[in-house]
Design a protein around this nucleic acid. Structure first.
Lengths: 241, 241
DNA sequence: CGTAACATTGACCCCTCTCAAGTGCCGTGG
DNA sequence: CCACGGCACTTGAGAGGGGTCAATGTTACG
């Protein structure tokens, strides 16, 4: 499925799109690019004249600290923009890294600018995308501040599963998660060793299994309860915006 | 200074505004409301038909956890919208609380809708405001994940001072910060006791003093270095958007 | 001058980190 | 077909940053 249809799917879940709006999106000029795992998709502080829509793979927004520490602020899935906000902020406050092999489509800011000038409604929906990402990141803050390692990991898995499901990429309780534990550590602000023990903790409780890049959620109810997870922040409600 | 002029000031720092754009902002209908310290300004999950622009006081965005834990995700200062994103997301993913006595101006979503339909440029600038807030929150994540208590507090003070300065509310190295340490603890994801010891740590190093609600930054250079602080994420650059 | 809210201190504990080894898997080359 | 290296995962032991509990100062204010 081409990335723009993923985008269309994602927007359609939040509001109705007219035929002309759909065709504006489908006719968006875009340039496809491939990245190997570990490659930087957009460098921190760069000022590119386009935004990247993720078509395949998983990517992360990373903030590097002076002492070499790394912290991811989001895990992006197909259908997400990695840096839609650079359309308005121009300069990126973080880097975007391919966590698996990735395919993106670059959409020129000039094209987004045309949408912005011509369709107020589409503009609001794109704005909504950045707002939803901000809401996800806010939950992330709550996790880092007030949830211990077990709850934090549980919340991460719940969030990810819900988003993949909404994107139509997780029909079953099982999802593709080909990430190393060291990446997970930098997502959740924990050490590699402790992530390992925490994953084992969730396995021991019978809440998940995770092997060879396949994550299965064995008991969604108990996992959500442990994580104090409530998907309301994902704005998955279709209504006029 | 009326809140809308604070808003105008804030937008003007990021791009030039035409006279007609200024007058659209200045003519925005708005309703002033006062809140006492501790009052909820907007309840979590509420769906209000307006957004709140903070005119005076300090407010926080709070996420409550099931176990009674509280985590703030942002400290808002005068000129900030507390919930501009509710214009597009409709339902709020967090609460907004008055941390001191506050005055806000409520701006109806219908009025924002008119701006959105009539001025693509102003819409992009409002969008930029939410994007900048998201960038601030991303730094918050990096802090919670990878900075220890001392660095985290230092980063918080640097961020706050820069934002107040940009808003024209901190001409000197000294700023009003009438917050209790218990609020700070919930901002930074630390315990009250540890915040107390950390504040004393910064004082002992001669980096700050903080008494009777007055925070003085004694050595900005060393404080920034300690915190690994770089204000680029605040988007304080005037350029076409 | 009594009370409430906030700041400070001490003692002890535990969650998570760091350091250091060891294991298992897989692709490559001999 | 096996040896080898690399990478990710796992495990153990010890240390420390930060948490909790509880008491004591301090300040503001009615």
């Amino acid at each position: 499925m081409p990335a723009v249809e993923l985008l269309l799917h994602s927007l359609s879940q939040r509001d109705d799109l007219s035929d002309s709006e759909k065709s504006i999106l489908l006719r968006l000029p875009r340039v496809e690019r491939k990245f190997r795992r570990g490659q930087t998709i957009v460098a921190s502080r760069s000022e590119e004249p386009f935004s990247n829509l993720l078509l395949r793979g998983l990517a992360g927004r990373e903030v590097m600290l002076a002492d070499g520490g790394r912290q991811f602020t989001t895990l992006n899935i197909p259908g997400d923009f990695l840096d839609l906000h650079s359309f308005v902020s121009k300069r990126l406050d973080h880097g975007a890294v391919a966590l698996t092999d990735c395919v993106t489509q670059q959409i020129a800011h000039s094209a987004l600018r045309q949408i912005s000038d011509q369709s107020a409604h589409l503009t609001r929906l794109l704005w909504l995308m950045t707002a939803t990402e901000a809401a996800i990141e806010r939950q992330w803050i709550a996790s880092m501040g007030r949830r211990d390692a077990l709850q934090r990991l549980a919340h991460f898995f719940c969030d990810l599963h819900h988003r993949l499901e909404a994107a139509g990429l997780a029909t079953e309780p099982s999802i593709d998660l080909p990430l190393s534990q060291s990446v997970l550590a930098d997502m959740l602000g924990l050490s590699l060793v402790h992530i390992n023990r925490t994953v084992q903790g969730l396995r021991a409780k019978g809440l998940i299994s995770w092997q060879r890049g396949q994550l299965s959620i064995r008991d969604f109810k108990r996992l959500s309860a442990l994580a104090d997870f409530d998907p309301a922040y994902l704005n998955l409600v279709r209504q006029p915006r």
